[in-house]
Each structure stands twice: as C-alpha cells, then as structure tokens.
Design a protein around this nucleic acid. Structure first.
Lengths: 339, 339
DNA sequence: GTTGCTTGTTAAATCGTTTTAATTCTGAAT
DNA sequence: ATTCAGAATTAAAACGATTTAACAAGCAAC
C-alpha cells in the first residue's frame, strides 16, 4: 500500500497536520524536536505526497499541455525539446499531443487538456486552422487556462505568441546568394496557403528589391514543401537560366540535388542551392546544404518561459516575440561561374 | 469559477449523489425524469468533472509516462508517435520526458513519474545504462507501476519488452547486397558498447556465413554512428577493394556518400551503399539510400498496447516481443561492375 | 394500524492532503 | 490558587468527486 501522511504521523507519534507543517517548511511555530521527528519518519518510510490529493487542493496540476501537428517533424521535435527543458526547470511536466495536422484535433485536445486541468497550454496550430481556431479559442476561454501560441499568430485566439522571423531568414539567405554574385536567382515557394511560406517569399522578394533587381514571375515556381516538387521546379528554373536556386525548405532543396545528380549538374560549381529549415540531414548531405536554421529550440524554450510567467500571474506582453533564424553557410552555394 | 457537481445539483433541484449517479449511467434505480433533469442541468452548465478529484478516488491518473533519450531523434520520435496514438485510443495521456541520454535522468524521471501517479511507464533506456538500470528498477518496484521496456531488454528491470530485430535487419540488407552479386562487402559498425550495434554486426556476419564467405577483419571498420566516422571508414574500406559498403546506420552512410562525391566515385555505379534506420532523409537524398526501416512506430504502438493490457490487469507474456525491420530497396545499391 | 416490501433519493463516508481555528499545556504573574 | 499569555500541537473543514448504506414514501397484506 501507498505510504500516506497518516502513516508518517503514526510512526512519528504526531498528528497528520503537524507532519504536513513540518514537511512543508511551515514549522516555524513547531519545536525543532518535532520537526526533526517528522522529517525522520518521512525519510524512513520514504513518504511522497500524493500528487492527486495535492492537486485537488491547490487546483494546479503542474502539467503543461503541448499540442503540435507532428512530433516526427524535426522542427516540432526541437520545439518540444526546448519546451520540455524549460518546463522541467520549474517542475512542470509536458503532456504531448499530436494533432496530425488536423485542426479539429487541435480543438479536441484543447478541450481534453483543459478538462485534465493543465496549468497552461502551448499551441502549435495545424497548418490550415480554418474555422477551428475560433473553437480552440472558446475552449481556452472557458477553461481560463493560460496559452502561448508558437510559430503562428491568430486573430481568433487572444494569446501571446512566439514566432520565427521567416521573412528575415529568407532575406538573409537570398542576400547571401546575391553577395556571392548571383543575379538570376530562382525561388521554389511553399504551398500558397501556409503563412510561413508566404513570409519566406516576401523575404526573397525584399532581398531582390534591396539589390534593385526586377522580379520575374518566371523565376518564382510554386512548390508544396515536398521533394518531388523541388525536382520539377528545378527543371523549369534551369530553362530560365538561373545560376542559383533558393528552395523555401530543405526537402525541396533535396529535389534540386536529385535533379542535378540525374542531369550531371555539379553543385555548387554549376548551380548554387540554398534551403530553409536546417533539417536534420542538411549538413550531412554529400554537399552540405547552405540553409537557414529556424530557432526552434529557442522558440520552445521561450514559449514555455512566457507560459510559466503567465501561470505565475505576471503580465506578459501581448505582442508576439519574434526570433531571428540563423544563416548556415555551407558548401552548396558559391559564386557563379561567370564572375 | 469552476462548475462543480454541486452547482449542477442545485440547478436540477437534486443532490450531488443523484447527479453523479445519473451522469455516470448508474441511474437504473433512478426515475427517468430525474436522470433527464440531471443531464439537462449538466449540459446547460457545461459541467465537466474535475480530473484531480476523480483521480484521488480512483487512484488512477489516466496518464502514461514515456521516457526517451532524445525526442529530436527520428527513431524515438516515431516511437513516441506510435505510443501516443495507441494511448489516445484508450483515453490515456502521454507525459513526455527527455533523458538526454543520461542514465541518471532515467532514474530521476522514473521517480518523478511514479510520484505523479502515472498508471504506467514506457521506457527507452539511455544507451549506457550502467548501474542506473538497477536504480530505475527500484523506483519502479516501489511504486508498483506497470512498465514496458522499448528497444532494449534489461536483466535488472523485470518488465516485458518490445524490440527491433536488429540482427534480422542487417541480415536482410547484407543478403540483398550478396544477391546483387557483391562478394567483398565492407561494414562500418556502430559504437562497440551499444547492444543494437552489436546485433547489427551479428547480422552482417551471419549473412556472409550463409553465403560461405570468409570474414575478413579488414572489412569490418569501427564507427560511432556519426557521419564523420563513415567518411574515414570509407577510405579504409576502399583500400581493401570493396564493391559495397554496409553502414550500420544512415548517418554513417552519408559519410560514405560524401567521400564518394569528393573523390568522384559514383554511387551506385562504382560503389554500392546500404544503411540502417531509414532516417528521415534517406529517400530524399540525390541517390535514395537502400536501407532498413526500423519498425519504430509499430514498436511504440505495441509497447503502449502491452502497457495498457498490464494496467487492465491482464497478464502479458514476459518474453520480449520482437518486430522485424523492413528492407527498403532504393537506388544506392546495384550489381557490381564485374558481374 | 402495524408490518414489510418496493422504489426513488440522499446523507455521509471516503480518497490524501493543506490550512485555519481551536485546544492543550507550561510557567509566570496576580 | 486563579488567571493569563504565549508556545506547541491538533481537530476539523475543505477540495470535488464517487459510492454505500440509510432513509422516506407509497402501497399491499394481515
């Protein structure tokens, strides 16, 4: 059987109340002898308070929920890792929920976590929230549970957010290509509906604008964040005579690589390539990929940080906290041949 | 304020006890009118029972703990995903703990989770458990919490396990190379202390033995599961005149790729390569990697399955459940030139 | 008009803590 | 010998549910 505070009390010849006081450091009015007796008995029986009973009184669970679209995706895994580390520092536990990118599951998990009485929620919304964001918001408001949004703002959900500056990331990497001397730089975009993809495109365009280069629509090919789309986009971009390609994620950059290998095009000698994400594999490729590293781990930590502050009752700024990504210069981009 | 069962009772003009009975379908002795009134009131107030109070009575938390070395590693992420999916089906929540590969954290988390009153634990032990496995065992035994070990057995910890058949995986992939006609096959091993690495080596040797090929120690080079070691091992293996290389994980296979690119060796024309793990990047490489896919997702699901059975009080077989990995034939291996 | 049997409802105990207010005890002052 | 003030300890209420055993109320039977 479980050791309860009564067992400790009996062993120490005290009442449960006294033991509780002694064990929680509120024994300033107890005699030192008594405190010691309680401590000894507790240690001897290896007493640990029942968390459920404790939660019932304090109305806290010491648990934080994390909802994300796909734990197997490295970006989200890093966020989870960062959040977990920060939570642990304050004794919170992370309850992990995989929404599989289905927004209705976001809602479901919001409810389930609220029921469970989590002290707060970390929310990485599914790519197309559709009308479901409003429903999430309802659940959250009803449960009055603090929330921090990660990597995406939302008009519907009134909560602080921590975000990656995707535009800046794209800006940095395209600038890098420009500095190397490239002038005809192709871009493979992400799926049109996804906010992060749009921001990255904006960064690409802004970089060109900074250098006074006219934007040709032929140099912007739509992709879908998957390798295959990178492969075919490459064909079209090479027809336009590009000397460098910026793929809006690393997976599509792999498609570029594959096209290059199959067609005897050497990277970076004949074609410079840059990606976005710094996926697990990016610096492990035969030609390590120049890319942009999302500050995912930091994002996770920062989100947890803000959440914990909220739980403590501190007021946190409502404007999103934006983190800069980091340019990772590796071997896949060099000056164009003509330079 | 939170809506309690008292509020519902008051609204329905009933006692809390009656409402409880009605809401939990134990109202066979209640009049239909009463049950309906309770249901209506609960719905109107959107009443949800407090989980903490409920846990206190039932002595269950509906939570399952998952301890793993690194959530950012795809193999573990897939395990987590599988476990999470299975747990969700039975209404359990997964509490995620990252041990960072430090065995003392395994112990710490065992204790913390036990304190928290999880209904069961899923345990992917750190690579070198050292003496800490015994300590984990103590915590587990004291808390009397059901446990399932994942991907590793342990003499110290008496618990059912689910494992990957690493030996079979290596056997399959090396057989594949042999069937293609290779006879001089190099092998880059994992770190000597790690059980999975040893098993993979055993599979390699067994495949050669099946084909009556003598094992040359020069063809077995020690690696450490990292890309760099794959790179240097390749140099030594090529000196031995191998036509194919089996790297004990995909990361080291990437090292082989890099060496090949830098030295103008074409894969698979001049050198066949096979890996192990089916990492996220493996089929995205310019030359998609022939490798072995660990049944990680299945492992996670199966582990959760067994754990839930244990929690239900069913007796589960104590011998480990072993899952076969799957050979993924892709483009990095073909018949040797001489054939 | 008791007794006994259903049927429907609820008071009260329980789970393991914390916390507040009450209680007991000690010794000093009147 | 009372009274009183502080010091040390504890009884009891509370948290929000479930569950068991007890309680009314209605009705039939003797």
């Amino acid at each position: 059987m479980r050791v309860t505070i009564k067992d400790v009390a009996k062993k120490a010849g005290l009442s449960p109340a006294t033991v509780s006081l002694a064990l929680n450091g509120k024994g300033e009015r107890l005699s030192p002898r008594t405190v010691q007796a309680a401590l000894d008995a507790a240690r001897e029986l290896d007493y640990r308070p029942d968390q459920n009973a404790l939660n019932l009184i304090t109305h806290r669970s010491n648990a934080i929920g994390l909802i994300l679209p796909d734990i197997c995706n490295a970006v989200f895994a890093r966020i989870a890792h960062g959040a977990q580390e920060r939570c642990q520092e304050d004794g919170y536990h992370l309850i992990l929920c995989n929404s599989d990118g289905q927004p209705q599951k976001d809602v479901e998990y919001c409810r389930v976590l609220a029921d469970r009485g989590v002290d707060g929620m970390l929310l990485v919304l599914s790519p197309d929230t559709g009308g479901y964001a409003a429903e999430c918001s309802r659940e959250i408001r009803k449960a009055q549970v603090p929330v921090v949004l990660i990597d995406r703002e939302s008009r519907e959900i009134a909560a602080p957010a921590v975000c990656t500056d995707h535009e800046l990331g794209a800006l940095l990497v395209v600038r890098h290509l420009l500095e190397l001397g490239h002038r005809k730089i192709g871009c493979i975009s992400g799926p049109p509906g996804v906010p992060s993809a749009q921001q990255r495109m904006r960064g690409y365009r802004r970089a060109l604008w900074e250098y006074g280069i006219e934007q040709e629509t032929g140099l912007m090919v739509e992709g879908d964040y998957r390798t295959e789309s990178g492969y075919w986009a490459t064909e079209r971009l090479l027809e336009q005579g590009v000397t460098a390609i910026f793929a809006c994620n690393d997976l599509m950059a792999c498609g570029v690589y594959r096209y290059a290998v199959e067609h005897g095009i050497q990277i970076p000698k004949n074609l410079s390539v840059a990606g976005f994400d710094d996926a697990e594999f990016s610096d492990v490729l035969a030609v390590p990929l120049t890319t942009v590293r999302q500050p995912s781990f930091t994002l996770g930590r920062a989100a947890a940080e803000r959440l914990i502050a909220q739980i403590r009752g501190e007021t946190v700024p409502q404007e999103p906290e934006v983190f800069p990504p980091e340019l990772k210069i590796r071997a896949s981009a060099c000056p164009p041949k003509s330079v």
